[in-house]
């Protein structure tokens, strides 16, 4: 692996520590909600890391910290070796030249009062490109790059005139107009129709190749992650429980949660009915603080040790680790051994 473009170390994000004015008056302390708990990750130049998890897993917050829309409670963030954890003002603005974001909901991504062209030009304007001719040229080039042609016509349209797929293309154009090195894409296709998704995903891959971009691709959908990424990190309740090369994660995951996620992807399989593995309950934020492994209340393999001891990070191969007491067993035999199957 070449040198990391972005390196996040032990990121933590707590919410709701301060409480309201009245709470302070009454001396009431709210328990902090730890949305992100000790997350470390590295993204190399030109690669895509997929961050996969269910709602509430902290994947979006992690993405927002990396774009520095949020400032982490603790931990550090290095971009090309420089510390960007606590930047503000002009320095933060300069960082944003290199790191951009694509958001989930294309319908809400644009100020309804502004034309698409104005919205795409906004980053340029904010980054001090004052010549309107240059701005226009770069906006047109960006719209052209995302296949919104003729770009001069699209740039004068209002967001309400465009479809979801077209809007998401504009989002990509806006994110790329500054020619960043890293793009955080937060579920960019989850709100689009199936027939539109493939075209957006293909476009993102094409642009990555052309511009040498790195992506942090946030998704709940393993099939999409598999298609987009070279590595996958799985988050559960604020922390990364397993990370590894994409193919290994799909075929030979070493954490029961990853195994369950893979098993739960509904898919047509010729001639067979897939057997379902029964899981217990649903992710509850309180599971993160009960002690032991935070997945044990739902884990089909949970043993006494899981309830008592926080699992160590088990390195299975270069670039593949799992936070599970039984990582090796799971990696070699999956979940099949212990769990009775349910039709």
């Amino acid at each position: 692996m070449n040198r990391g473009l972005l390196e996040a170390r032990n990121l933590r994000m707590d919410y709701g520590v301060s409480g309201g004015f009245m709470d302070q008056l009454l001396g009431a302390k709210r328990a902090p909600l730890r949305a992100v708990d000790d997350v470390s990750l590295t993204i190399a130049q030109g690669e895509t890391l997929a961050l996969v998890g269910e709602s509430g897993s902290g994947k979006t917050t992690t993405g927002r910290i990396i774009t520095r829309l949020e400032r982490p409670t603790s931990g550090s963030l290095l971009f090309e070796g420089r510390d960007v954890t606590a930047l503000s003002g002009a320095a933060l603005r300069a960082y944003r030249r290199h790191c951009q974001m694509i958001f989930q909901n294309p319908y809400e991504s644009f100020d309804p009062r502004l034309t698409v062209g104005t919205s795409v030009a906004e980053p340029l304007r904010l980054q001090g490109i004052d010549s309107s001719a240059e701005r226009r040229e770069r906006v047109m080039a960006a719209l052209d790059a995302v296949d919104l042609r003729p770009s001069s016509i699209f740039s004068n349209r209002f967001p309400t005139d465009l479809s979801g797929g077209q809007l998401q293309r504009v989002s990509i154009a806006r994110a790329l107009v500054l020619e960043p090195k890293l793009v955080v894409a937060d579920e960019p296709v989850s709100m689009l129709d199936v027939s539109i998704r493939a075209s957006i995903m293909t476009l993102m891959l094409k642009l990555q190749e052309r511009m040498g971009l790195s992506y942090l691709y946030i998704t709940h959908d393993l099939a999409v992650a598999r298609h987009m990424s070279s590595r996958i990190a799985v988050m559960y309740l604020g922390t990364i429980v397993e990370e590894g090369p994409t193919d290994v994660m799909i075929a030979g995951a070493a954490h029961p949660y990853t195994r369950l996620l893979v098993a739960a992807v509904p898919e047509y399989r010729a001639g067979t009915r897939r057997s379902r593995i029964k899981t217990r309950g649903e992710a509850a934020a309180s599971d993160a603080v009960i002690g032991g492994c935070r997945f044990h209340p739902r884990c089909p393999l949970a043993a006494d040790i899981c309830r008592e001891v926080i699992p160590p990070r088990v390195n299975l191969a270069a670039g593949h680790f799992s936070d599970c007491h039984f990582a090796e067993t799971v990696a070699s035999r999956g979940l099949a051994v212990r769990e009775p199957r349910v039709a």
Partner: peptide, 17 residues
């Protein structure tokens, strides 16, 4: 919390802008 405000911030706008 609308995405377009977030997008503007991500593009480099200060919260005042």
């Amino acid at each position: 919390s609308r995405t377009y405000v977030q997008a503007s911030l991500a593009a480099g706008a200060s919260s005042w802008q």
